Amino acid sequence: GLEHMADEEKLPPGWEKRMSRSSGRVYYFNHITNASQWERPSG
């Protein structure tokens, strides 16, 4: 619920959580730099 939404908002600017269609794993994508990574971004 609300706790999940608050957790999402802690991601650094530009980052969003996405799911890989090929593997079904969650990864993180930065739409500003077009960077993507499996680890949760910090800072």
Results as ranks from 00 to 15, higher is better:
residue 1 G to H: 11
residue 1 G to S: 12
residue 1 G to I: 13
residue 1 G to N: 13
residue 1 G to K: 12
residue 1 G to W: 11
residue 2 L to A: 13
residue 2 L to G: 14
residue 2 L to W: 14
residue 3 E to H: 12
residue 3 E to F: 03
residue 4 H to L: 11
residue 4 H to C: 15
residue 4 H to D: 14
residue 4 H to Y: 10
residue 5 M to Y: 11
residue 5 M to L: 11
residue 5 M to K: 10
residue 5 M to N: 13
residue 5 M to I: 13
residue 6 A to S: 13
residue 6 A to T: 11
residue 6 A to R: 11
residue 6 A to G: 09
residue 6 A to P: 12
residue 7 D to T: 10
residue 7 D to F: 07
residue 7 D to C: 15
residue 7 D to S: 10
residue 7 D to I: 10
residue 8 E to D: 14
residue 8 E to Q: 10
residue 8 E to Y: 05
residue 8 E to H: 09
residue 8 E to G: 09
residue 8 E to I: 09
residue 9 E to F: 07
residue 9 E to N: 08
residue 9 E to K: 06
residue 10 K to S: 14
residue 10 K to C: 15
residue 10 K to I: 13
residue 11 L to G: 00
residue 11 L to N: 01
residue 11 L to M: 05
residue 12 P to E: 02
residue 12 P to H: 02
residue 12 P to D: 02
residue 13 P to F: 13
residue 13 P to I: 08
residue 13 P to Y: 13
residue 13 P to V: 08
residue 13 P to Q: 06
residue 13 P to L: 08
residue 14 G to M: 03
residue 14 G to S: 03
residue 14 G to Y: 06
residue 15 W to L: 00
residue 15 W to V: 01
residue 15 W to D: 00
residue 15 W to T: 01
residue 15 W to A: 00
residue 15 W to I: 00
residue 15 W to M: 00
residue 16 E to N: 04
residue 16 E to R: 05
residue 16 E to W: 04
residue 16 E to A: 05
residue 16 E to M: 06
residue 16 E to G: 04
residue 17 K to L: 09
residue 17 K to F: 04
residue 17 K to V: 09
residue 17 K to S: 05
residue 18 R to I: 06
residue 18 R to F: 05
residue 18 R to L: 06
residue 18 R to Q: 03
residue 18 R to T: 03
residue 18 R to W: 02
residue 19 M to L: 14
residue 19 M to Y: 15
residue 19 M to Q: 09
residue 19 M to K: 12
residue 19 M to N: 06
residue 19 M to S: 07
residue 19 M to P: 02
residue 21 R to Y: 10
residue 21 R to F: 11
residue 21 R to L: 15
residue 21 R to V: 14
residue 21 R to C: 15
residue 21 R to M: 15
residue 21 R to E: 14
residue 21 R to T: 14
residue 22 S to C: 15
residue 22 S to N: 11
residue 22 S to R: 15
residue 22 S to D: 10
residue 22 S to I: 14
residue 22 S to Q: 10
residue 22 S to W: 09
residue 22 S to G: 11
residue 23 S to Q: 09
residue 23 S to P: 05
residue 23 S to W: 06
residue 24 G to I: 03
residue 24 G to S: 06
residue 24 G to P: 03
residue 24 G to Q: 07
residue 25 R to T: 05
residue 25 R to H: 05
residue 25 R to M: 06
residue 25 R to G: 03
residue 25 R to V: 05
residue 25 R to I: 05
residue 26 V to K: 03
residue 26 V to W: 13
residue 26 V to N: 04
residue 26 V to H: 07
residue 26 V to D: 03
residue 26 V to R: 04
residue 26 V to F: 11
residue 27 Y to N: 00
residue 27 Y to E: 02
residue 27 Y to F: 11
residue 27 Y to M: 02
residue 28 Y to D: 00
residue 29 F to V: 05
residue 29 F to S: 01
residue 29 F to W: 08
residue 29 F to R: 03
residue 29 F to H: 06
residue 29 F to L: 03
residue 30 N to E: 01
residue 30 N to G: 00
residue 30 N to W: 01
residue 30 N to I: 03
residue 31 H to E: 06
residue 31 H to Y: 14
residue 31 H to L: 14
residue 31 H to M: 10
residue 31 H to A: 11
residue 32 I to M: 08
residue 32 I to Q: 08
residue 33 T to A: 03
residue 33 T to Y: 05
residue 33 T to D: 04
residue 33 T to G: 02
residue 33 T to K: 04
residue 33 T to M: 04
residue 34 N to D: 04
residue 34 N to I: 04
residue 34 N to R: 14
residue 34 N to M: 12
residue 35 A to K: 15
residue 35 A to I: 15
residue 35 A to T: 14
residue 35 A to S: 11
residue 36 S to A: 13
residue 36 S to V: 15
residue 36 S to K: 13
residue 36 S to I: 15
residue 36 S to N: 04
residue 36 S to D: 02
residue 37 Q to D: 01
residue 37 Q to K: 03
residue 37 Q to F: 03
residue 37 Q to V: 04
residue 37 Q to I: 04
residue 38 W to G: 03
residue 39 E to H: 11
residue 39 E to T: 08
residue 39 E to L: 07
residue 39 E to I: 07
residue 39 E to F: 07
residue 40 R to W: 07
residue 40 R to C: 10
residue 40 R to M: 07
residue 40 R to F: 10
residue 41 P to Y: 01
residue 41 P to F: 02
residue 41 P to V: 02
residue 41 P to M: 01
residue 41 P to W: 02
residue 42 S to A: 09
residue 42 S to K: 10
residue 42 S to P: 08
residue 42 S to H: 11
residue 43 G to T: 11
residue 43 G to N: 11
residue 43 G to P: 11
residue 43 G to M: 14
residue 43 G to F: 15
